[in-house]
Design a protein around this nucleic acid. Structure first.
Lengths: 211, 211
DNA sequence: CCTACCGATCGGTAGG
DNA sequence: CCTACCGATCGGTAGG
């Protein structure tokens, strides 16, 4: 064995040397873990379960992750970022009517969930299992996200476009519909996320009573 | 030791012999388990954690339960029954306006959650960890509950009181608000469950747009 | 990437 | 209700 060279074992690298897909082993592990956590929950999934789905031994995963919990955080944090990224431009777009912005925000939210169904499920279900410091970072992103919703509603109320009221309570009806979506949505359903978002936005904006 | 008599060890009975509170040891265990499952999740809570909160050894719990999973089911099933019991009379009350019935159903739902906050949290979060046969019973009760909501909405749409539409989609906005409530409600908040239900019902019936 | 292995902890049982 | 204990499994490390 040569000395002075870092010792590398097969597959220890971030990307496989074979130049096939650009998806790194780390991404494969995140996908496998996301699917398993979504199916059974974080605590009911073992490191060996994840390894089995990836097709390696449990110990081999530790070349690509610090711990099982770090894996959970990576999944949850990425989804949190997707939500924030989706709403930031809508929250900044003060020129358009609040109703249009709320409709767009709901659509983007449902699309983020649908596009990341396993990991979005983990985000809502298992974020509490992150260790305290990391959990605080998640809570901060969630707070940022919810504040953006409230600000859109507050804009609409201030301009008289929306009925006066407490933006916090109003935002909760939108966020409830948006967040609960991850618990029941299945891609096999008749309506796609965009159509569902439009239906929900109509109901939330106009109400269920006939006029 | 006399033979022909069942051997009983202290505390093995369903109710303590001391005639104090009518709360049985079994109820104590359910309360302790409910609190711990709500705090950390079913799989992250050990039988020893539950025993520690009750103040006995882990092995002693098995005089009052078949298994940890049976305890989970007992908690979840009871909450499922509370929801069904709350909505049955409202769903049967075809004479009153749908808007009034929806408002009542939402209020009852939020009150069930608030009155059983730890166990309602477990109901929504950990029902999937029940074993398959028992989980099916829970799903059936949940389906019954959701069907009752849809029937109230269908009544209102058929009578022209509510705007025409898909009762399933409309029910989802109410159920989302109702079910998501368990994730954020804290009794220290400014509004009680009844006031919150009224605010949410106003928004869902009349919509967020000003008229 | 693997084999081999660690101490800790798990749900649950035996038996009185 | 307890003590004593079981086999299984856990997340993770050593070392190549």
């Amino acid at each position: 064995m040569r000395s002075g060279q870092p010792i590398t074992y097969p597959g220890t690298n971030e990307r496989s040397a074979g130049g096939g897909r650009p998806t790194s082993r780390r991404e494969e592990i995140l996908t496998a873990a996301g699917a398993l956590f979504a199916e059974s929950g974080y605590h009911a999934t073992s490191v060996r379960d994840i390894a089995g789905r990836v097709g390696v031994q449990a110990a081999s995963l530790y070349a690509h992750m610090q711990s099982k919990e770090e894996l959970l955080f990576a999944i949850v944090d990425r989804v949190a970022d997707e939500f924030v990224t989706a709403i930031v431009p809508i929250a900044a777009d003060h020129a358009r009517p609040a109703a249009i912005r709320l409709r767009a925000a709901l659509r983007r939210h449902l699309e983020v969930v649908a596009r990341n169904l396993p990991t979005a499920t983990v985000y809502f279900h298992d974020w509490r299992s992150c260790d305290p410091a990391r959990r605080a970072a998640i809570v901060q992103k969630r707070d940022t996200y919810e504040a953006a919703w409230r600000s859109i509603i507050a804009d609409g109320m201030a301009g008289g476009e929306l009925a006066p009221g407490d933006p916090k309570i109003a935002a909760l009806t939108w966020l409830s519909t948006a967040n609960w979506f991850a618990t029941w949505y299945r891609p096999e359903g008749a309506l796609d996320p965009g159509a569902l978002a439009d239906n929900f936005a109509d109901l939330l904006l106009k109400g269920l009573m006939s006029r």
